[in-house]
């Protein structure tokens, strides 16, 4: 799932939201503690700016707190929480960008970095990294979303399907077309040089 965990984690999340409904701030603090980094990283993948991702993640938790009473206890917590983050990110992008739901270039190149702990990092072409960063910004929100979940969150197709409430076949299809566009954008940038 979007946060590291298992069925027990999911049960605990739901139990915490039930407690938050009763006004339990300790339960809210625990929920924040469990998901704060995940919330930030998801928002970062969607908007591509650390400051805004931080604000979006905080606002997402406030929405959870305020709308806990409307939470459907039959549904798992994480897809609900993801929907909140994705909607906030969409709204943020719509406000900031003339191109609907596209990332805006705020010269924040530090949102996506080379992981130097990996052995492959030493031989990776730095230009390709810059191209990828830029190409991701040019993708549509939906394409970037599916790439973010699979490539950078490392989620399986089943997990993505559950999170986005779509069939597994649709995950595969969306990933194919998103990758095609991403590869095309990178090819284009490479050809421009």
């Amino acid at each position: 799932m979007i946060s590291e965990g298992n069925d027990k984690t999911m049960d605990t999340d739901m139990a915490l939201v039930t407690e938050i409904r009763k006004g339990d701030k300790k339960a809210f603090a625990e929920l924040v503690e469990r998901h704060k980094k995940t919330a930030f990283r998801i928002a970062l993948g969607l908007v591509g700016n650390k400051d805004d991702a931080f604000d979006i993640s905080q606002e997402a938790f406030l929405r959870v707190y305020r709308s806990a009473s409307t939470y459907d206890e039959k549904q798992p917590f994480q897809p609900w929480f993801y929907t909140i983050i994705a909607n906030l990110s969409r709204t943020w992008l719509r406000r900031r960008s003339r191109r609907e739901n596209r990332m805006v270039d705020l010269d924040d190149v530090s949102w996506l970095l080379v992981d130097n702990r990996t052995p492959e990092a030493a031989v990776i072409n730095k230009e390709k990294v810059a191209d990828l960063r830029q190409a991701l910004k040019e993708l549509s929100f939906e394409d970037r979303e599916i790439i973010m979940l699979q490539h950078f969150r490392g989620m399986s197709y089943d997990e993505i399907a559950q999170l986005l409430s779509i069939p597994k076949g649709t995950v595969m299809s969306r990933l194919y077309y998103a990758r095609k566009k991403l590869a095309g954008l990178m090819r284009l940038k490479n050809g421009e040089k």
């Binding site: 930030f40 993948g45 970095l113 990776i124 950078f152």
Partner: peptide, 14 residues
């Protein structure tokens, strides 16, 4: 090739 590039990338932390 795309996977090779994304495989060495990670989101920034705070």
């Amino acid at each position: 090739r795309l996977q090779e590039v994304t495989g060495v990338m990670q989101y920034a932390d705070l």
